[in-house]
Design a protein around this nucleic acid. Structure first.
Lengths: 141, 141
DNA sequence: AGAGCAAGTTACCAAAAGTAACTAATTTTT
DNA sequence: AAAAATTAGTTACTTTTGGTAACTTGCTCT
């Protein structure tokens, strides 16, 4: 049934990495955990799509983002753009023309995150069929 | 200011990957997008922590998870475990002892996702300081 | 003169998440 | 023998977050 090919070696290497990250984590760090804080924003479903689209179209304006990030509301788009800019993933450039033009683009920091995000998206794309078949088959047997 | 070292080459490779993922995306796929569907669950902030901890402790019981995934509520933990199991990331084993014992562990599929997640977490760990300083510096200048 | 545009904001309603008390059956403690 | 603790959740209730749609502002096009 399982089509994955994860070797024991890979599992061991993963365990070592996790040990480095979690091994020396005391109570203070559990309450304020950098993974949590960074990921809470950066792995948010809308943030991911915004960052991916800004990787695809290097410069985007508000309404362009709204069209491509299908289903996002003005409210959430505007709020996410603010915090993503505040955390340094993207830059906002306003041109005082009429009507006003506001352009968003990834910073170098945002690009560095985008690289990781792309790997995750590639995994999601290639494994979505399996998720669907897992979901269907669940509960049966 | 920017400490990142993303080369133009890397940006080009990223753009090519995005083109493959987004290039041939028509309206139907925008409404049902596999990245969205898979990631909505798998990149959820609690799901990420659950999967990471199950990578660290290969077998965990409900209350153990609740202790480690600091701050999660019974309600959300129980709901996430259900959908993560349904999508095939983890397996649930119930032992009809008294009191009942229920063990959770990652499937091979879950392990394959964990590998990507670890890279993301490593990025988050090494970049959390920069996020903090970005956040502090925002608005100034 | 009226409509249209861009980039949002606002008020209101729906959905998701957090809180805390509760369940069941059995073992351990008093 | 009665009370307390244990595990893996569930339930009712409150709070926070998200979605919907109408509105704003100042200029340009028809």
């Amino acid at each position: 049934m399982e089509m994955e090919t994860i070797t024991e070696n890979q599992k061991v290497r993963v365990a070592e990495k996790l040990k480095k990250m979690f091994g020396h984590m005391d109570r203070r760090q559990m309450e304020y955990c950098p993974i949590r804080d960074v990921m809470a924003l950066a792995s948010d479903k809308w943030s991911i799509l915004i960052i991916l689209y800004l990787g695809y179209y290097p410069v985007m304006r508000f309404n362009h983002l709204k069209k491509r990030v299908y289903g996002i509301s003005n409210k959430v788009l505007s709020e996410r753009l603010k915090v993503l800019a505040a955390d340094g993933y993207l830059a906002r450039n306003m041109f005082p023309e009429v009507p006003v033009r506001v352009e968003y683009n990834l910073t170098d920091f945002g690009h560095s995150y985008l690289q990781k995000l792309i790997e995750l998206s590639e995994w999601a794309t290639t494994h979505s069929d399996q998720v669907m078949s897992n979901r269907k088959g669940f509960g049966k047997v």
